[in-house]
């Protein structure tokens, strides 16, 4: 799979994938999208790199271990359960904070968003872990 076209196009593909994965992530909640699909797209960016060059360079671009991604993602999801408990409702209850911006736009921030970001990281981490492991074993042979 080491073609020069893919290698050259890689920075653009990576940028587009990650950019749109973030957009999909934030579009989530009330529209199609969300953490799961976003995470898959983000992991796609790194998989392309692993295909175009090799696993090691992809790992270098990622900078951390996939397992760290999984851990932090799960931790975020777990944290999002806590505000519900603190306000006396069952855990995981959605709590929202509204921050007024200009005109009548408000920024709604809430625990479901945190949960979704957690999902995003977890999914990206899990997929990358699978792919890296399988590709590396392929290279041993």
């Amino acid at each position: 799979m080491k073609t020069i076209i893919l290698q050259m196009a890689l920075p653009y593909i990576r940028f587009i994938l990650i950019f749109f994965s973030v957009i999909t992530l934030f579009r989530g909640h009330n529209f199609p999208g969300g953490g799961f699909i976003g995470g898959l797209m983000a992991s796609g960016a790194f998989i392309f790199q692993a295909l175009a060059w090799d696993v090691n360079s992809s790992r270098k671009t990622l900078r951390t271990q996939p397992s760290v991604l999984i851990g932090s993602g799960l931790m975020m999801a777990l944290l999002s359960a806590i505000p519900g408990i603190l306000t006396g409702k069952p855990f995981l209850t959605g709590t929202w904070v509204k921050i007024p911006l200009f005109a009548d736009h408000t920024l709604k921030l809430g625990t479901p968003l945190l949960f979704d970001i957690g999902v995003y990281f977890t999914v990206a981490g899990v997929v990358l872990m699978f792919i890296y492991t399988l590709m590396e074993e392929w290279q041993w042979k």
Partner: peptide, 18 residues
């Protein structure tokens, strides 16, 4: 009563990092 699920999850997350 969710704690029997949350505690192992929390423990597992801690174990990921080391």
């Amino acid at each position: 009563i969710a704690l029997p699920v949350l505690i192992p999850l929390f423990t597992a997350i801690l174990l990921v990092f080391s």
